[in-house]
Amino acid sequence: MDTQDFTEGESKEPGNKGNLNLWQRISGVLWGGPVKTFEDIVGRPGVAAITVLLLAVNFILFLPTIPKVKEFTLWSLQNNPQTASLPAQAVSAATTWAVVVVLVASVLMPLVMWLIMALLLKLFNAFSGENAPFKTLFAVTAYAYLPVLLASVIHTVLVVLSPAQNMHRVNTSLALLLPGDKIDRLYMTLAQIDPFFIWGLVLLTAGGSVAMKVPAVKVGMYVAVLWVLYVLGMGLLSPLPPAGM
């Protein structure tokens, strides 16, 4: 990613710590100049605004998918021999439960993910670089989540535009390139390789490097190793969905 200084006349100078507002930070992280932006974030790591904003956007993105989630759940239950004859009350409960699960996964899970990533950076920081407060590292992970949020926007739009039956086929990972709908180990592995997520990891590396004052290569190696382990673990060890689903 670009690491040079901001030169836009209307922006405040990003090199001056704590000068950028929330929107300038968002645009700076995504496109303007992540390193300089993270320098600003590290100088004034306000986490409340970005956290609330991201969670709110996630929640808003969740709302238009509710009818699709319900419709897809109903369709899946009706076409599964084991659940085809469920009573209406059970179907209704399952549909509601599916919406709750999607809500938790899309709104709350990012928060958990930021905490875990911040903890991993803090663990790295215990052995390397200058001491960076957890709050600063959390702010870095939250801003590094922006590309994933962008993917969520694309995902929501595609889900809304697609038939409910195709909801599970909407994807932003490399699994998109596989033909057919067969869910095997290759699919599970490629499903973990999402360009938007990788973009987020690059931003995490840049932000972590700035926050801990450690060379980006060093942080990048650490993040890359963890990510490869995560991809392999999820791809090779996570259970395949039941046949027929």
């Binding site: 899946s76 076409n79 599964n80 595609l158 697609s162 038939p163 039956q165 195709n166 599970h168 086929r169 909407v170 709908d181 027929g244 689903m245």
Partner: peptide, 8 residues
């Protein structure tokens, strides 16, 4: 997703 997904 041009075509509707088949029943799994």
């Amino acid at each position: 997703n041009k075509n509707t997904a088949g029943i799994p």
